[in-house]
Design a protein around this nucleic acid. Structure first.
Length: 491
RNA sequence: CGGGGUGUAGCGCAGUCCGGUAGCGCACCUGGUUUGGGACCAGGGGGUCGUAGGUUCGAAUCCUGCCACCCCGACCA
């Protein structure tokens, strides 16, 4: 095993795999398409989860839990939903095992066939709306604002760690409202929550927009999304929020009595983000040395590496920094003192860079004599000598500066990789030579969108919210267009 | 499901063409010297060669079936 991970330039996919595997975030399990999320990777998810959960609760939502299994018949109640999700699902057909009568292990008991097959949820709209039917009778029961943290299963053909696995962790919000307007507001509000989280916590700039009918969630009237740009110029959908209209209410007969004592169908939304965000985080910021984590999401924010030859020197460093560590911890900053005497400093430096720890402080006998420390920031890899006594205030400032710098860097990258194309040739050239987001006019038809996708593998990522209106002609058909859509090749 | 590839120690690989009872690097264990950017020396442990058959005096190596995984497509958050 080489010391370094594969570089981005050499092989971007291999680089990504190295980040995940060598960074000990996750690994392939013995179950096809399913990953084991290791402690360091799970710590990232926990931090994301904690922050999101706080935001959900601040906006009035509560958590609940619905079953993993969905009766097969539920999935066929909403016509568009069936189309989108009927395939690629795991199906439970039996409920018992038995010893193989021919010897050798265990077999499925053929007598234990389920009356109705159960589907392992690919998403929970159906089971939840079937439940909401019993909960919603009056306008007084609305709005119903519920979120669920769960795992879901989609039997994907090809999987990639964090980006697409057969089983993944996510949260799914499912809300019910008395008016269309209120439901739309909810869907837009949650999109804002996601955008705020991804930009300010994960330091990844996103485009907010709506999907075209082609890319819309199965069963939605409108799908909102946030789209991020990865370092290889491919787009990644970082979160979605759907206005479901009355589709699920009608499919599951969820009606309420309004103030005028007449029956109405309920208006719905659903919204979700998944462990895919970890993939986005990795591909947005990391470099050829390993992960680069924004301080707000980093499981460990500061590591202190003592340089020592013996216990006396180690203890001298520890005594000198214990007050600093306590002060930082009091400010909510996570700090580790790495007193491991089995590995040498150079090894530790490389290891913490691989793990993406935002700030590293090295202190040895020389520093103790001078009252200094070497402070290294992971995002720019700059090192400087600082006064030990100033670290208590300098480190929190540095963490903020790293967080801000990472966002600015990612934003600059996105701006430099967002281009306008006015002809189909230019469009294809940009995709092939430069990648990134391409702003282009199209005639608004599914046929054109499909044709462009088929010929270039680029999809419309979104029509941005507040998109400027502009007269133009479709790059494919030459028909008139009033605004540009955001195209890209995507994950 | 189509096309391609790979299965040999925890990981990465050589050995396979040309059959003779398995080796290298990293990791691991022990001891010592080291420690300001991925230490060094010495010693040591670990493998029914994916699996089931076949050919042979003898199979990691040849033949056949099966399985798994990876990459590229179609599908997708």
């Amino acid at each position: 095993m080489s010391k370094k991970i594969c570089s981005r330039a050499e092989d971007y996919s291999q680089w990504y795999n190295d980040l995940v595997l060598r960074g000990k975030l996750a690994e392939h399990s013995s179950v096809r398409g399913c990953m084991v999320i290791r402690p360091y990777g799970y710590a990232l998810w926990e931090n994301m989860k904690t922050e999101l959960d706080k935001k959900f609760k601040e906006t009035g939502h509560v958590n609940a839990y619905f079953p993993l299994f969905i009766p097969k018949s539920f999935l066929s109640k909403e016509a568009a939903h069936v189309e989108g999700f009927a395939k690629e699902c795991a199906v439970v057909t039996h409920y018992r095992l038995m010893n193989d009568p021919n010897g050798g292990g265990i077999v499925v008991d053929p007598d234990a066939k389920l009356e109705e097959e159960l589907i392992v949820r690919p998403t929970s709209e159906t089971i939840i709306w079937n439940t909401y039917k019993g909960w919603i009778k009056s306008y007084r029961d609305l709005p119903l604002l519920i979120n669920q943290w769960a795992n879901v299963v989609r039997w994907e053909m090809r999987t990639r760690l964090f980006l697409r696995t057969a089983e993944f962790l996510w949260q799914e919000g499912h809300t019910a409202h008395s008016t269309s307007q209120e439901a739309i507001q909810e869907a837009e509000r949650m999109l804002d929550v996601y955008a705020d989280f991804v930009e300010n916590f994960l330091a990844i700039p996103v485009l907010k927009g709506v999907k075209t009918p082609n890319e819309r969630f199965a069963g939605a009237v409108e799908t909102y999304c946030i789209e991020a740009l990865m370092q290889d110029g491919k787009a990644l959908q970082a979160g979605t929020s759907h206005f479901l209209g009355q589709n699920f209410a009608k499919a599951f007969e969820v009606q309420f009595t309004n103030k005028e004592n007449t029956l109405e169908f309920v208006w719905a939304t659903s919204w979700g983000v998944s462990t895919r965000l970890i993939g986005a985080l990795l591909m947005a910021h990391s470099d050829d040395e390993g992960l680069v984590l924004p301080p707000k999401v980093a499981p460990l924010q500061v590591v202190i590496v003592p340089i020592f030859k013996n216990d006396e020197e180690l203890n001298a460093v520890f005594d000198r920094v214990s007050g600093l560590m306590a002060a930082l911890k009091a400010k909510g900053i996570s700090v580790k003192f790495d007193d491991d005497d089995q590995t040498r400093p150079g090894f530790k430096f490389a290891q913490y860079e691989l793990e993406g720890v935002p700030v590293r402080v090295a202190i040895g006998p020389r520093d103790l004599a001078n009252g200094t420390a070497e402070v290294a920031r992971r995002d720019t890899k700059e090192k400087q000598v600082a006064q030990l006594d100033e670290l208590e205030t300098a480190i929190p400032e540095l963490l903020d500066a790293i967080q801000a710098n990472m966002f600015q860097k990612a934003l600059k990258f996105r701006e430099e990789n967002t281009r306008k194309a006015d002809t189909y040739d230019e469009f294809k050239r940009i995709l092939d030579d430069e990648a990134g987001f391409v702003l282009a006019h199209y005639d608004g038809t599914s046929e054109t969108e499909d044709k462009i996708k088929e010929e270039t593998k680029a999809t419309i990522r979104c029509i941005p919210l507040n998109n400027p209106l502009e007269e133009g002609v479709c790059i494919l058909t030459g028909k008139p267009s009033k605004q540009r859509a955001v195209f890209a090749r995507a994950y």
